[in-house]
Computed example of a mutant assay.
Amino acid sequence: MAAIDDDENPLSLSARPQFLLLNFFGLHLLGRDAAVYSGSIIEVLDRVGVSEQAVRSTLTRMVGRGLLTRHRQGRRVYFGLTARAITVLEDGKRRIWGTGAVNRDWDGNWTLVGFSLPDTRRSDRHDLRSRLIWAGFGMLQNGLWIAPGTQDASEIIEELGLAENVSVFTAQHAKPTESADLVHKAFDTDVIAARYEAFLARWDTADPLPSLPDDLVRRLLLHTEWLQLVRQDPHLPAEHLKEDWPAIRAERLFRRLDEQIRDAATRTAAELVDEIPIGEHPGDTR
């Protein structure tokens, strides 16, 4: 079976602070015309073990990638969201709150992506596979990837410049193939389930992550880990998953914890996070 590559545990993300930064901006800036002081960002991420140097270098890279803009007020530098970042964060918000833990509305269709790239284009092949995994596709066989439902793979293909090398179409299974066979050939459901079980083990306790200083960073880590989980979940048809599928319990837990800590996290953010309205302080947007 084709396993989905695991990302690093979001509870030890000092090596990958962009995940944390994106979630921080999603929680505190999405839907608002504001920018956050770099010192506030540094202070929040220091509470989860990310160094100042790592935060500053990641912010610079995110500006370079067109995800953030800089805004100056006096000697202070603030960071706001670009249209590209808003699109990414809105997609994350939809996955967290709108998609749901189980696909109960599957119409029987599959999206298939077929490609053939020579060894001289190994890097392109790797990038395509990585993007397909991120989009919820699984490898059915060499050069043929599938995802349940009707999926739009055009943006992935266009961004990688592979339109001449990739074919995309939708189809339904036919005898002797069964849809359950496709699920278990292309996706490692044991690996997916184990991720949710790990989430439950970490967060379903009387005092989740007691070493954290406050609910602001606890909520940041909760959202970071949950978004990584749902982004790696191909959202397989419920009829082909076991009845006690752990994603259902994990989603209930996530929503309950978020409701419990949201107000305290918001109060702490109001005290700690310095921000400015972008419209009043356009400053340097390089």
Rank of each mutant, 00 (worst) to 15 (best):
L162E: 06
E164R: 14
N165W: 10
T170L: 04
A171W: 00
Q172M: 11
Q172F: 09
H173I: 11
K175A: 14
P176A: 02
E178M: 14
S179M: 11
A180F: 08
A180R: 14
H184Y: 14
K185W: 15
F187H: 12
F187L: 03
F187P: 02
D188R: 09
T189Y: 03
D190P: 02
D190T: 13
A193T: 00
A193I: 00
A194N: 11
Y196L: 07
Y196A: 10
A198Y: 05
F199A: 02
L200I: 12
L200F: 07
D204K: 15
P208D: 04
P208M: 00
P208S: 02
L209N: 07
L212R: 12
P213R: 12
D214M: 10
D214L: 09
D214W: 07
D215A: 14
D215F: 01
D215M: 08
L216E: 13
R218E: 01
R219H: 00
L220D: 09
L222S: 03
L222P: 07
L222K: 07
L222T: 05
T224L: 08
T224M: 03
W226A: 12
L227R: 13
L227F: 13
Q228Y: 04
Q228T: 13
R231T: 15
R231G: 03
D233H: 07
P234I: 13
P234G: 12
H235N: 15
H235T: 13
H235E: 15
H235F: 13
P237K: 04
P237N: 00
E239C: 14
H240G: 08
L241P: 06
L241G: 08
K242H: 11
E243N: 12
D244Q: 12
W245R: 00
P246H: 01
A247N: 03
R249Q: 15
A250R: 06
A250V: 03
E251A: 05
L253A: 03
R255H: 05
R255S: 02
